[in-house]
Design a protein around this nucleic acid. Structure first.
Lengths: 347, 347
DNA sequence: GATAACAATGTAAGCGCTTACATTTCAATT
DNA sequence: AATTGAAATGTAAGCGCTTACATTGTTATC
């Protein structure tokens, strides 16, 4: 039986309650929690005991209002539904946790308006830093961010003619390498299934990479058949069906990501087309999905975990006030697997 | 050129700035933002103009300190790396967005200590409600939550002998149905690859379901070979190798989830075993991965999106003060695909 | 033993917002 | 024109915390 006054039943204890119980001022309690070595060990012990007894935990809103920092980082990704983002953000969060920051994630479903709104929301919620995917967005959004003086890091893209710092990879070069390879295998009739390009600089860069590769070997890049659609297995299948229902049929279909490619593969099977004998298919991202199909998908490996990790470190430094203006370009890598082969000898 | 005073350059505008610029009191501005119909249209227009001109957006910390609500919901899931959670939480978030709440996600990596810490963090950050996966956790954690009076909803599990409200499915029954099917196909030598059971009530329930099925047909449930491991493709493969290196080899391997099952399938291929001719393999969850393997994976379909959606609605109602004590049990469904067949005729 | 220097603690003023209550304005009614 | 009630707005007291500054206690130095 304690000699202390009984614990209040319902209400959430505040700093003042702890202070009273420990017989000190609120300032001392605060110091105990934030810079313990500023307070005498004896009092500290007493205060900590009170904290425990009351089950006190500081009110985050009050704290951040007072210090004008939230230790929160906001990230806006297109979707959680694609493993590449889910896992990238997981790595980002793990690294962030190490620094003691919390992550607030929002997903925009590839919609610029939604993304803009979420930027506002996250900043209003006091995000001290922002992670965004891709460079492209309404200048007004950037204005707003700059006005608030919130450091922003762009990821998933790297582009030398962008001034904002970014941790990403060169979508153009990565996809060009894939297209080079496809051409090298002898394909001359190529079609593309891409995400909608209008609002998506990564998708656009990838298609441009393919066109550049075509141009390099003297092919007509302007009449490349590009089908645009949503990123989903189903849509990938529909896109593939559309492409293969026209003549002449391409001998290779380059897909904007693995999800589309897997959809294409399934549709190929449905249509009775053998991969890669009748048609080659390539992906982009190298998520698990790509490794378990039969045959396994030839794709571009994106170091998503490394990207997430580095982005976290970089952004954290930016938030610390470091003028980290330089960007980092990570290496992607061709993963040659079973879905890419030469075009059929007999046409 | 405006007749108004020039905009301040660096500082973030506050309510007071808006009030001054619009020539009203802070109270009026606040009302404009929160209950617009309480203020005269003329002044409202003036205030909104000031808001726009200054690019004002309210300070979340200050607001929640004043109203003692954050409109934030915390969710702690085991991992983002498994699509089943990533997608469930995506659905949860989408539904939440409709109500105007924000989601704060943390992942515990299946570690109870980490989870407990995250509960504290989320509550300290003012989460008005909490979504947790599975019932099992240290009673102290529940004590802490109750003390703070934060509504909690459990998901991914449904269990009539738990008192906490939950939106989930019956792991025991779902896995028993799968085991029933496997037995019905004639298998008598069965092995299991499961997640670690100690801290994971869902995994445990699933294994119990298998044992119950065995018992139903008069088999020895106690000597069932259960290999426990982490949830990953690689570990699934290792577990499978371990199982198949012992004699007598089972004719069917039931896996605790799809990720393990896919790992098992890959290892089977490596070992030169044909699925399902030499060995049947089953999964649980029915994520995309299960549909793209060859043959496609026989698994238990979990309505993860529906679960996320309903959980959001339920939790939102609980936060509104509704005494929503009843739970919901969603239906799972066997998805019979290519990896399950009868045991080989010739042994 | 007086003094200085430092360590430990307390006092109180914000941080930006909401809201109960007080005050003013205005239209409707007599 | 006086009265009244409702509508619109203003005033100011918090919400729970941090921290600059003031105060007190303690030890070392001469």
């Amino acid at each position: 039986m304690s000699t202390k006054s009984p614990l209040p039943a319902e209400i959430v204890p505040t700093l003042a309650d702890v202070a009273q119980r420990a017989g000190v001022s609120t300032a001392t309690v605060s110091r105990c929690l934030n810079s313990p070595n500023q307070v005498h060990q004896k009092t500290r012990k007493r205060v900590m005991a009170a904290v425990d007894e009351l089950g006190y935990s500081p009110n985050f809103s009050a704290r951040s209002l007072a210090v004008k920092r939230t230790n929160t980082i906001g990230a806006i990704i297109p979707t959680m539904d694609n493993a590449i983002f889910a896992r990238g953000i997981q790595a980002f969060q793990e690294e962030l946790g190490r620094s003691g920051a919390t992550l607030l994630v929002a997903s925009s479903s590839y919609k610029p308006d939604l993304e803009a709104e979420q930027v506002r929301t996250l900043i209003a919620r006091g995000a001290d830093g922002l992670l965004l995917i891709g460079h492209q967005r309404d200048p007004k959004v950037y204005d707003f961010i700059d006005r608030r003086n919130v450091p922003v890091l762009v990821s998933w893209a790297f582009n030398t003619d962008q001034t904002r710092p970014s941790i990403g990879f060169d979508n153009h070069a990565a996809m060009k390498a894939m297209a080079d390879k496809v051409l090298e295998m002898g394909h001359r009739d190529i079609a593309v299934i891409s995400a909608w390009q209008a609002d998506n600089d990564r998708a656009r860069e990838r298609v441009l990479g393919i066109r550049a590769a075509l141009r390099d070997v003297g092919l007509d890049a302007d009449n490349l058949n590009v089908v645009e659609t949503d990123y989903s297995i189903e849509k990938g299948g529909e896109g593939f069906a559309e492409i293969m229902s026209a003549y002449p049929r391409p001998t290779a279909v380059i897909c904007g990501n693995d999800v589309l490619a897997v959809g294409a593969m399934q549709m190929a099977q449905t249509m009775g087309l053998r991969v890669p004998d009748d048609v080659s298919i390539t992906g982009f991202d190298d998520i698990e999905l790509a490794k378990v199909t039969t045959p396994a998908l030839t794709t571009v490996h994106v170091p998503h975990r490394e990207m997430g990790r580095r982005a976290a470190q970089h952004l954290w430094r930016m938030m610390g006030g470091a003028l980290e203006d330089e960007s980092q370009c990570l290496e992607t890598e061709l993963r040659l697997r079973g879905t890419l082969a030469g075009p059929a000898a007999a046409e």
